[in-house]
Nucleic acid binder design. Sequence first.
DNA 1: TATGAATGAGGGTTCATTCAT
DNA 2: GATGAATGAACCCTCATTCAT
Lengths: 195, 195, 195, 195
Amino acid sequence: MRREKPKFKQIIDAAVVVIAEHGYHQAQVSKIAKQAGVADGTIYLYFKNKEDILISLFQEKMGSFIEKIEQEIEGISSPLEKLYVLVRTHFSALADDPHMAVVTQLELRQSNKELRQRINEVLKGYLRLIDSIIIEGMEKGEFRNDLDVRLTRQMIFGTIDETVTTWVMNEQKYDLAALAEPVYELLAKGCAAGR
Amino acid sequence: MRREKPKFKQIIDAAVVVIAEHGYHQAQVSKIAKQAGVADGTIYLYFKNKEDILISLFQEKMGSFIEKIEQEIEGISSPLEKLYVLVRTHFSALADDPHMAVVTQLELRQSNKELRQRINEVLKGYLRLIDSIIIEGMEKGEFRNDLDVRLTRQMIFGTIDETVTTWVMNEQKYDLAALAEPVYELLAKGCAAGR
Amino acid sequence: MRREKPKFKQIIDAAVVVIAEHGYHQAQVSKIAKQAGVADGTIYLYFKNKEDILISLFQEKMGSFIEKIEQEIEGISSPLEKLYVLVRTHFSALADDPHMAVVTQLELRQSNKELRQRINEVLKGYLRLIDSIIIEGMEKGEFRNDLDVRLTRQMIFGTIDETVTTWVMNEQKYDLAALAEPVYELLAKGCAAGR
Amino acid sequence: MRREKPKFKQIIDAAVVVIAEHGYHQAQVSKIAKQAGVADGTIYLYFKNKEDILISLFQEKMGSFIEKIEQEIEGISSPLEKLYVLVRTHFSALADDPHMAVVTQLELRQSNKELRQRINEVLKGYLRLIDSIIIEGMEKGEFRNDLDVRLTRQMIFGTIDETVTTWVMNEQKYDLAALAEPVYELLAKGCAAGR
DNA sequence: TATGAATGAGGGTTCATTCAT
DNA sequence: GATGAATGAACCCTCATTCAT
């Protein structure tokens, strides 16, 4: 399994740093190789081409991102609390990895349509996770039972994403993690069943 | 004022068509010139450089977009109704201009960080409009008075934007305008003062 | 018609010089551009890609080569004399253009199979010319009437080509034109009707 | 002597197969190694570099090719018959080894000038053999005594080579061996002393 | 001997921009 | 104002060769 090879991760981590520091369009393969401490050609022993680096980067990072959130949520029985933990974990994960935040919120969105569609495939896993919370919430009676799952998910994800993007564009000047609570409150108001 | 010259608009409209049909990275200056029916060099009599075309495009189109929404809202006294009209107008404007929808939701986001920051300058006008509705809503008691304006605006804009993007990525297969009502309901739940 | 543009010929002539002096594999586009006195990009206004330069080179040069031979032959009624003039013209044309001789006999043969097949298309015109002489020779009774046209053409072309190649590989040290007569004699013996 | 090591031949045979199937420019060292069932690095225990593989290939194969022809000719007293047997053996050897025919007639000619000059060194043995037949033919009175040895050899070799190349380029669709007789007749007409 | 992961030099092509007409 | 031919900088990827094991 190639993903266990240290160089695979080494190159991906280098790509995150280079993209965050120089921007997507200035992230030449040679720059990534240099940052990773390998020769240009070595990149191509682990990745099909440049695009493959970026797709793998997203899969790898987003994969562990989703895993982390799933682990945090696991064991929680209240869907509303799950929603809160999801927002909190999402925010704190990106607050803890400023490079990655820049890459996902700004730089990777400059990629071409094809790459972004591949990225969306990965994102779907996250969106399904949100969906499952919404559905469970309605079943357990914590969420209003007339919610449109897709629209609700778009509200939740859209709000989280916009909040992070604004934070990144403001150069991460304020404490993103601290926004988890109020953002959750706002979303919960939209979802929760009236008492 | 250059913006009144017919060729200025002619080139911008050509850019929208070319970007929508060929994608951002395939929208070469020569292709835009051809579509506009002018010589390559002529572009540079009206725009400083390629980026300037795109910034102008966004300013021009976003400007009239905001104007249209302001007009629709004007005269409405209820902030909640203003919010509804804003969502409805936003959705129907993009549903009526599929080219523009593709350009703003997908293609223009591939531009580099600098261009996107310029675009955000333009967007700020829209965000201020949303802010004013929120503030007015709290003042008039229609919205909860403990709302964080920035977060609430991020929820509103994030939800709208995510909804439109999902619709565009699904190739505009369903009726976006019909989503105005349920999306408004969702947002209103998050904002509105309890009974 | 692009072939009338001076730069088209200018670039082709530059390609001949560069290939002759540096060899096929060292004939970079930038080197050809420099020799032609144009920018690298200008090449691509006149040629689709590098291969197109080489194909055009061969078409252009081989075309006028065949034309020249056809003109020399025209008006001659004796097929045997036509054969002689063909050999003589072939030899003297290459003897007069040492760069071209190197290019056609050595360098262009290093091109890939696809390019060589395109070149062969052009060569067919020449082979057809030889065929027509053979057929006319048999009809007029100057050539033996039991000749296999294809084999005879292969003998004539193979002998001429091998003679020129040997001369080029010996660095054009001796007088190629002087070989026209004896080579003709040899070929004529193989073709001519005995009496 | 390295040539007796089994891997030496193994690699050369692999090279013939790979070049014949994939073409000269697609015959990477790693592909040859794989076909030979050895590691890339192992190649360099038996050959100085890639070019050395090809030179050795030609030496090895051409060597046994010439040997075979010499054996066939040995014991024949008539130079004309020797010429016939040479043509016949040349044709049938290549007809029996289609891979080798493609490699020698098409693929190896794409190699660079230096390699081709090394190949010509090897070829000289064959050309000397032809020369010896011509000289013997003149001495014994079977050939015209005014032949220029070099030109006659160029005719013989050029005709044979052109015939084989045409056959290969026509995808070996017809029976090459059957052409030995008529090609010999044609050459003999050019060489033989009049009755 | 044998391996195969790692190396790194080298080049065809695109396209935003200029400027002589 | 308008043209469009010319410019030239910039980059991804391949593959022959090496060398630590």
